[in-house]
């Protein structure tokens, strides 16, 4: 990935009069962290970054804008938002368009074909984080860690993030401007973590998820980081009726997690953000992948690929499977 080209393109986009800002990644404050950044002028584009550490899905910020009431006589800022996307992020943008969460003409998608990102937790385990920000690059085959003027080659199959092992769309599915060359899709990993649980019997599954859900501290970072969880009025915040009690215990946590997974059935684009941000390390990705697999196998639907598609849960086919009906 040519960073110069990325920064040049971004600067060109940002100076356009109809663009409010560009959302991209920049180097974080330490270690392997990368922080989202809102670039408002050409000079800001110089700190943009695209590296195997850019795991965050920036499409979240499209729907995260909080609108305060406008003072009388003032017009809303209707300029466009530009956004850097990887393959998975572009699926989130597509799905948002499908659901009319955003308007296609309100975003400028700057696509970055992505050869896969690293699992920063695994990386930090092997090579502990330093106070100084480190860099990671692609070298065609593997990742290269640049830290303290040392170059360490990181084997791809060892450090590739879980979500990337199962990624079918490394190239952005929609983009207005593409930076860099398209990458060749790779062979998918066989193990998606779902079969492992399906192999258990009901009691074992119950025990497994009880252990997992009991860990939940209900910080809602999985909800907030999700590009497709953008309801203005979330059921989890409602008190009248109280869908899910505020108490934190296994019962309510299960209701919350099932509700979350269900709301993402047929919508989750498997960017893996929920699993990455969870401070309690709950394997939320397994729930999402299970649902995504059912949707694909039983209903032949893949979210976030076709901007013209009908939303999965708001559409039907007369011949949908009904073998479970009495």
């Amino acid at each position: 990935m040519d960073l110069e080209q990325l920064r040049k393109t971004a600067a060109e986009v940002v100076v356009r009069e109809d663009v409010k800002y560009l959302i991209g990644w920049k180097q974080g404050s330490y270690g392997y962290r990368v922080a989202p950044v809102f670039v408002e002028d050409a000079s800001g584009a110089a700190e943009l970054l695209f590296s195997p550490l850019c795991t965050a899905n920036l499409a979240t910020y499209l729907t995260l804008v909080e609108k305060t009431p406008l003072p009388r006589g003032q017009e809303a800022d209707k300029r466009k938002v530009a956004l850097l996307v990887k393959g998975c992020d572009s699926r989130a943008v597509t799905q948002l368009i499908v659901e009319h969460g955003i308007n296609r003409d309100q975003v400028i998608v700057v696509g970055c074909p992505c050869p896969g990102v690293v699992d920063t937790e695994k990386l930090a385990e092997k090579y502990p984080e330093q106070g100084k920000p480190a860099e990671v690059e692609w070298n065609g085959e593997n990742f290269v860690l640049l830290c303290d003027d040392k170059e360490t080659e990181l084997p791809r199959d060892q450090f590739l993030a879980e979500k990337c092992r199962l990624c079918r769309h490394p190239n952005p599915v929609i983009s207005d401007i593409t930076v860099g060359e398209p990458v060749e899709p790779w062979t998918l990993a066989d193990d998606n973590g779902v079969e492992e649980i399906e192999g258990k019997n009901l009691e074992e599954r119950q025990a497994y998820w009880e252990e997992q859900f009991s860990k939940c501290i209900r910080c809602y970072s999985c909800r907030n980081v999700c590009p497709l969880c953008y309801c203005q009025d979330c059921i989890l915040d409602r008190l009248n009726p109280t869908w899910v009690n505020r108490a934190v215990n296994f019962s309510e946590n299960t209701a919350f997690n099932i509700a979350r997974a269900f709301h993402l059935a047929g919508r989750c684009i498997e960017c893996g953000e929920c699993e990455r941000v969870c401070p309690a390390n709950i394997p939320l990705g397994k729930l999402n992948r299970k649902m995504a697999r059912e949707v694909r196998d039983k209903y032949g639907f893949e979210p976030g690929v076709d901007p013209e598609a009908e939303p999965f849960q708001a559409s039907f086919k007369p011949d949908d499977p009904e073998d479970f009906i009495l």
């Binding site: 995260l64 970072s221 907030n224 941000v277």
Partner: peptide
């Protein structure tokens, strides 16, 4: 700007 508004 980049805050997600979660409770972590």
């Amino acid at each position: 700007a980049s805050c997600l508004g979660c409770g972590t």
